[in-house]
C-alpha cells in the first residue's frame, strides 16, 4: 500500500508514515485521512498543502481588497481552518516562498513493515536519546541577552 505523500513539520520536514487513504482532487497525490479534508464548496477531498495554499491566496486577495482596514481580518471560510493544521500547511508554503527558507529534511520512514531497518535503527543512536538532557541544558531563567 502506498504511504501518505505529505511532509509533516515546519522548520523540519518528516515523511508521514501512515498508509495513503485517498487522492487529493487538486494535486492527485495520495494522502492519509489525517492529511485530507473534504472541501465544503466542492465536497471533494483536498490535501492540506493544497487547501492551505488556497486559504493563503484567499487571505492575500482579501487583504488587497481591504486596504482601508488595517486590522487582521479573515473570512469565515478561512476561520474554519484557522486553528486546523490546514492553516499551518498554507502558512508554511507561503513562508518558504516569502522568506526563502528551506526546511531541514529529517529523513524518510521505512516502507518495509517486517523487520527493523536503518531508518528504525538510527532513531536509537545515543545522539537521538532525548532523555539525556545535557549539562548545558536550556535554562529558562537565563537570558542570553544579558551581557
Amino acid at each position: 500500500m502506498e504511504n501518505c505523500n505529505m511532509k509533516r513539520g515546519f522548520f523540519f520536514l518528516r515523511d508521514c508514515d501512515h498508509p495513503a487513504h485517498q487522492s487529493c482532487s487538486v494535486c492527485q497525490a495520495s494522502f492519509c485521512s489525517e492529511h485530507l479534508r473534504i472541501k465544503p464548496e466542492t465536497n471533494e477531498p483536498v490535501c492540506l498543502d493544497c487547501l492551505g495554499r488556497t486559504m493563503q491566496q484567499q487571505q492575500q486577495q482579501q487583504q488587497q481588497n481591504q486596504t482601508l482596514n488595517t486590522r487582521n481580518r479573515r473570512n469565515d471560510y478561512y476561520d474554519d481552518y484557522y486553528y486546523d493544521n490546514a492553516w499551518c500547511y498554507g502558512y508554511r508554503s507561503n513562508y518558504y516562498s516569502s522568506s526563502h527558507y528551506s526546511p531541514w529534511y529529517l529523513g524518510n520512514s521505512s516502507r518495509n513493515n517486517s523487520q527493523f531497518n536503518d531508518q528504525d535503527m538510527r532513531v536509537f543512536d545515543n545522539s537521538a536519546d532525548i532523555n539525556d538532557p545535557d549539562a548545558e541544558a536550556f535554562d529558562p531563567e537565563a537570558n542570553v541577552f544579558d551581557s
Binding site: D17, S109, N113, V123, I130
Partner: peptide, 17 residues
C-alpha cells in the same frame, strides 16, 4: 517514545507487532 522523541509511528508499530 518517551525516551527517543524522534521515533516514528512505523517503528513503534513494528515494535508493537
Amino acid at each position: 517514545p518517551a525516551r527517543y522523541g524522534a521515533i516514528s509511528s512505523t517503528t513503534c508499530n513494528k515494535i508493537r507487532l
